[in-house]
Simulated assay, not measured.
Amino acid sequence: MDFRRVIVIDFAGLGIGEASDANRFNSVGADTLGHIARFADPNFALPALSRLGLGNIRSNDPVVGLPPVEAPIGYYGKIRLKSQNNVALSGLREMFDYQTDIRTTNVIDSIVALLGVNSILITNYLSYLSNQNMAQIIPVNSDEAGFNELHQQVIAPNNGLLYFRLLDLQQKALEADGKGCIDVLNVVDQHLSRLMRELYSTDLLMITSTFANDPTVDVVPTREYLPLIAYMPAKPEGKSLGIRRTLADIGATTAQIFGVEPSDESVGHSFLDELS
């Protein structure tokens, strides 16, 4: 595929079950998605995310209201945090940083400096993102404001990287508000349904999360596998991406799309060739 734009939506705070090293982070039994689904009403459903394959990630252990679908339109899998520094911003750095022959840098600035395409970040003020000097930062303080900006940016014919970090889900999780988490996911799913109609055929949409926060567990953040969904409007046929070892695979995939070449010391491995 000849992608011209990568859109990353970060469901910050959403985990999908304890990671293989959960015992090292007091997170055995953590399952953000599974646990908050218990707060939903009997008609709970996330149609857009289900079509994309969210339920298929856990086909062997389905979440209430999210059964696997027969023909998902997105590629789907689990991805994990490799960093042993288990804090909320670790995943963000891991996702975008990569190693050159001489230093550590990041995909966000590199694609602007090397290729002249855009990096647009829709987020609140986080130090890591604010320090990307070549990116256009659009500050927002709620998901509603963020999605309004996202829809405007998506319909514009720009090339490059577009990143949006959800805010409300992590806040509701910190408040231990499981019902509030469900309300957030319902609203997000409606926006995703609209977003998929707005995408260009040369777009690649990636949905993930940079950390997990199970509101039923007294640990912040919780060490969990994180969702990974990749959707191509030009090819709405999905399959499993398996279990990815590091969030850096997302940055490596973005780098390959735009012709940025990390050194062999970089930890990420692109899955671009698997999207075929």
Score class of each variant (00 low, 15 high):
Ala212Glu: 02
Lys82Pro: 07
Arg80Gly: 09
Leu167Thr: 07
Arg103Ile: 15
Phe164Leu: 11
Asn131Arg: 01
Ala12Asp: 14
Leu228Met: 01
Ala156Ile: 03
Gly160Met: 14
Pro72Ile: 07
Ala176Pro: 00
Asn158Ala: 15
Asn118His: 10
Phe25Arg: 03
Ile57Trp: 04
Ala22Arg: 04
Ile155Asp: 13
Ala135Ser: 10
Gly74Ile: 11
Leu241Thr: 00
Thr254Tyr: 05
Ala30Ser: 14
Ala156Arg: 11
Lys239Asn: 06
Val6Ala: 15
Asp61Trp: 14
Glu144Cys: 04
Gly242Thr: 01
Pro157Thr: 09
Phe25Asn: 06
Val107Ile: 15
Ser142Thr: 12
Ile137Ala: 11
Pro157Ser: 09
Thr208Trp: 04
Val184Pro: 09
Leu33Glu: 01
Leu33His: 06
Leu192Gln: 04
Leu174Ser: 06
Leu185Pro: 01
Glu265Gln: 11
Glu175Ile: 03
Arg194Lys: 10
Ile79Glu: 03
Phe39Ala: 08
Gln84Phe: 08
Gly91Ile: 05
Val64Thr: 13
Asn133Gln: 08
Tyr98Asn: 13
Gly55Trp: 06
Ala156Lys: 07
Ile137Ser: 12
Ala22Thr: 09
Thr202Glu: 05
Gly259Pro: 12
Tyr225Pro: 07
Ala173Cys: 11
Ala212Phe: 07
Thr222Pro: 00
Asn141Leu: 14
Phe96Leu: 13
Asn213Tyr: 10
Val140Arg: 01
Leu166Pro: 03
Gln84Asn: 10
Tyr225Gly: 02
Ala230Leu: 03
Glu149Ser: 15
His191Glu: 06
Asp218Met: 13
Ser193Gln: 15
Thr216Ala: 00
Asn43His: 14
Gly242His: 13
Leu126Ala: 08
Met196Tyr: 02
Ser27Arg: 00
Ile36Phe: 12
Asp41Glu: 14
Ala255Asp: 01
Asn124Ala: 10
Ser110Gln: 10
Asn60Thr: 15
Thr105Arg: 11
Asp31Leu: 08
Arg58Thr: 09
Pro62Trp: 13
Leu275Val: 01
Ile16Val: 12
Asn213Trp: 13
Gly29Thr: 00
Arg58Asn: 04
Val107Asp: 07
Leu205His: 02
Asp97Ile: 07
Gly178Lys: 06
Met206Leu: 08
Arg24Phe: 11
Leu115Tyr: 15
Leu162Ala: 00
Ile250Arg: 12
Asp61Phe: 12
Val184Trp: 05
Ile155Gly: 11
Ala248Trp: 07
Pro262Ala: 09
Asn106His: 11
Val140Gly: 01
Asp41Lys: 06
Val220Thr: 13
Ile79Ser: 00
Gly180Gln: 14
Arg93Cys: 07
Ala173Lys: 04
Ser142Asp: 15
Ser270Tyr: 02
Ser266His: 12
Asn56Asp: 01
Gly77His: 02
Ala12Asn: 12
Asn133Glu: 07
Ser59Cys: 12
Leu199Pro: 11
Leu192Asn: 08
